[in-house]
């Protein structure tokens, strides 16, 4: 064994990689391909499958019933990403422009919600938003500001709010990291050349922070599209997303091939969206260089 590695040094990294590769091939890559394969099989009894090729599952994902949920999930994920970016960028900018000591504290203050359980953070909003017993509606009614409770819960608004709240730190941290790395002399050079504030921002700061924007957007968009916990808790059982439909196929309907097909299509949409986004951003970057 020892001699084998002495004679073939190219095998050494594989020795180090072997445990990770084994674990991930058996418990990640293989299951991934099984899901892909299941998408094309016929449904058996009680969660089983019949080994017969069919395109029926994929066709059903385009049924208006399911396809509309797909579109809604996509809409919710895009709106969530948009709000995270619009709210998160100035926050990252704020942190990056503070003095170094303060910056450390502010980043730490961002890590605390980031490390706090997602389920708990979603539950916190449940206690605030519920229609008749939520803190916001109860307080507003007690103060006499409103007579009837506001529709804050069990709709897209509640889901988007919960997702924005949950994933905002994931947007802020990479943008902050990009702004922190930014060479301040470039900004000073632009100012010395009489560029206006907005010009300095759009021609210098924004293009240089794009890698952070891209990373943050991906970190928000992908889990938002595949959200399961947030719609399950804040959707009030009415407002569902694709993640809930998928879980229903496994936990309630026992239609695993169809659940697999939905999951396959979801991952394909994520891949496609990621590619399109990268293309759009890289063309933006090219424009900024001209």
């Amino acid at each position: 064994m020892h001699r084998l590695f002495a004679r073939h040094p190219s095998l050494r990294p594989w020795l180090l990689l072997l445990p990770a590769a084994l674990w991930l091939f058996v418990f990640f890559i293989a299951p991934l391909f099984i899901v892909l394969a299941y998408s094309f099989l016929e449904r058996g009894t009680y969660g089983g499958v019949i080994w017969q090729f069919t395109l029926e599952n994929l066709r059903r994902t385009f049924d208006p019933l399911y396809f509309s949920t797909f579109l809604r999930s996509l809409y919710i994920a895009i709106v969530t990403t948009f709000f995270c970016l619009v709210l998160g960028y100035p926050l990252a900018y704020y942190i990056a422009t503070r003095p170094p000591r303060q910056r450390g504290t502010l980043v730490l203050a961002l890590m605390i919600p980031f490390w706090t359980n997602f389920l708990i953070r979603t539950y916190a909003w449940l206690t605030l938003l519920r229609t008749h017993t939520g803190l916001i509606n109860v307080t507003l009614i007690n103060l006499g500001i409103i007579q009837k409770p506001l529709p804050l819960f069990g709709n897209d608004f509640a889901i988007i709010l919960g997702l924005v709240y949950g994933w905002l730190p994931d947007m802020v941290l990479p943008i902050y990291a990009a702004l922190d790395r930014l060479d301040i002399s470039l900004v000073e050079a632009a100012q010395d050349l009489y560029a206006s504030g907005s010009k300095v921002f759009w021609r210098v700061i924004w293009p240089l922070s794009l890698p952070g924007v891209v990373a943050g957007s991906m970190l928000v968009f992908i889990p938002s599209l595949g959200a399961f916990v947030t719609p399950a808790i804040l959707g009030g059982g009415k407002s569902l997303m694709i993640g809930n439909i998928i879980s229903n196929q496994f936990l309630a309907a026992h239609d695993w091939p169809f659940g697999s097909a939905l999951s396959t299509v979801m991952m394909a949409v994520m891949l496609l969206a990621t590619l399109l986004y990268f293309r759009a951003v890289s063309s933006e970057e090219r424009k900024a260089l001209v």
């Binding site: 991930l24 293989a30 991934l32 099984i34 899901v35 595949g226 993640g243 879980s247 999951s263 991952m267």
Partner: peptide, 23 residues
């Protein structure tokens, strides 16, 4: 291997969960 290592980070929980459930 880079791709194999990054995939579990970016794949949504729900997809990984049902993959493992079936497996």
């Amino acid at each position: 291997m880079d791709a194999v290592l990054y995939l579990p980070i970016i794949i949504p929980d729900i997809a990984m969960a049902i993959m493992l459930l079936i497996f």
